[in-house]
Design a protein around this nucleic acid. Sequence first.
DNA 1: GGGTACATGTAATCAGTTACATGATTTA
DNA 2: TAAATCATGTAACTGATTACATGTACCC
Lengths: 180, 180
Amino acid sequence: MTADKAPSLTPTSYLVLGLVARHDACTSYDMKRTVSGSIGYFWTFPHSQLYAEPVRLAELGLLSEEQEPSGRKRRTYRLTDAGREALRLWLAEPTDEPTEIRDLAVLKLFFGREAEPEPLRILAERAAAAHRKRLAEYEAIAAIPHIEKHERLTLELGLRFERHSIRYWEEVAEEVTEER
Amino acid sequence: MTADKAPSLTPTSYLVLGLVARHDACTSYDMKRTVSGSIGYFWTFPHSQLYAEPVRLAELGLLSEEQEPSGRKRRTYRLTDAGREALRLWLAEPTDEPTEIRDLAVLKLFFGREAEPEPLRILAERAAAAHRKRLAEYEAIAAIPHIEKHERLTLELGLRFERHSIRYWEEVAEEVTEER
DNA sequence: GGGTACATGTAATCAGTTACATGATTTA
DNA sequence: TAAATCATGTAACTGATTACATGTACCC
């Protein structure tokens, strides 16, 4: 009996659960705003998902939904006990899934043999520039006074990644134009 | 007239085009094998896509398809002129799409406020271990004598990323257990 | 000659993407 | 009060994931 647990929640599901937990109560738009200033730098989630996913989670009984009857009729979500428990279990379980680094510039570089050196050099310089810009954004966030500890830790990952990426692409830009 | 170019090819499409270009002629299984030892470390592509996508590309006239009549009836793909041109254009165009770093461990760390310190520490140590393992795999590949230049460049990115990730997660493991 | 791992696909489902659409606020 | 932007969704499509299924080669 029972045992048909976990209708397989996706990363998006846990993102939503986590965001609701952090805000105690929030709307899809709140989620969107939070994501776009933090974890969304690493892993993008389209806003349509942030509207669709809570509906699913409410059906599963992991969120409660409360809709304004008038005006905007926003839907505000809260964790149910089941939702809090699902989040807790997920957080408590380490993962072995490896990091995915999805980068079109890397994909193009990988096929660099099929390309001309000059476009490749431009590719690398544009990539370096993009990482410089991203680094500046992270530094602006890091300058804000009181940031929650774990948010700061993930931000730190971003800072390091961007610094190393800049170095990397600058070196690539040089190497691809060299003979041999 | 004309101008209705690009029925929007996905990264998977260009992956396939690039792989076919590199091998001159190849089957879906060849692609799978190549991917799993190189770019697939960064960006995973399920093998079913490597079977489905070439069919689409052949319909679009970017690949030619030749099927063995007997035995395994493997399908071998080659670039058409249109396919070669599509790949060339894509490679020549730099991208501004930012890197996505999708990592469940980071997602969990981000929500660390909702978790207990001890599970978090374990999470960080498991992550560090996973990156150590991945680093070892990369080093084994790097030890192989003659690797094509651009493949080596992307491998170098992987090596650096793993080294920094190990450091990062080791530090996280310490910090999450500290007071404050 | 039976098992195991490699090889080659197809099918069904579903999440994610893109596009569309409109309501509410602010500001010029 | 018109324009612009912010806010809040829905709909359609299709690519990606998962699962299934079977054929072929190798090895014990």
